[in-house]
Amino acid sequence: MKTLSRYGLMAMTLLKINIQRGLEYPAHLIGWLISNPLQFIFGLITIKVVISNFQALGGWSFEQTVFLYGLGIISHGLSVVLFIQTWYMGFLITEGELDRMLVRPLNVFFQFCFFDFNFIGLTDMLPGIIIFTYGCMAASFQFTLANTLNLLLALVGATALRGGLYTIIGALSFWIQRSRQLIGVQWKLFDYSAKYPMNIYPPIVQGIFTFLLPIGFICFYPASQLLYANAGFALPGNLCLWTFAVGIGFYMLGMMVFKIGLRWYESCGS
């Protein structure tokens, strides 16, 4: 209990420090405030243009796709805020930052998550919320109690799932010195999986994205349940609850891989 409150206090302090750091560079902040939303607006334009020229993708209308897209951006923004440092893990290792973390009397994983709390991610959240709100209205999503609860479960799950996958990929830098580009791969994967309904892919790919690398849960499955849209595979049970479970599971897996990696680092150095 005592350690828990200690870590809670630490997290608050680090939060404060990191906001202060961000405010040191107002020009950057404004830059990101323009560039990040721009990226999502362009994504939206792509979907609009294609659906209006062709047809609903995999049976998903433009409105439903916007809902899906918005949901994806929100969990992306949250994961950027919370887990961005996993993207730099290779850098932290080569620059000796990890050594520094090892000589501090705090849990190393905690330090990884909180010493570089990134509130730039909020510049993703803003357009995400706007796009999602529009999607909710356009796709006439009902904010009933059950729906709202499911939505929250899905968001927490999706964020944890992203965090877990980021952590796994990031922890690969313990073994592979330049895993940075792997993060690029993952980024592209997430980007596409979030943007388009997953049932446009052949069943084998859907299978991989469901059972092996479950990025379908990031927004496709929860959105398909919340909107009663075509989900490709007929998975049993509450898909939002599944998202939550898969997310937490992957997050734990990520922590485990990180721990193993750290042990490897302690025995091999960089």
């Binding site: 630490m10 420090i17 750091r21 040191e24 560079y25 501090r104 009397p105």
Partner: peptide, 17 residues
Amino acid sequence: YWDLPLGESFELLRRIY
């Protein structure tokens, strides 16, 4: 912390230790 006044890093270390 590169971007912050020295005192902030000290305050953080005070809490860490």
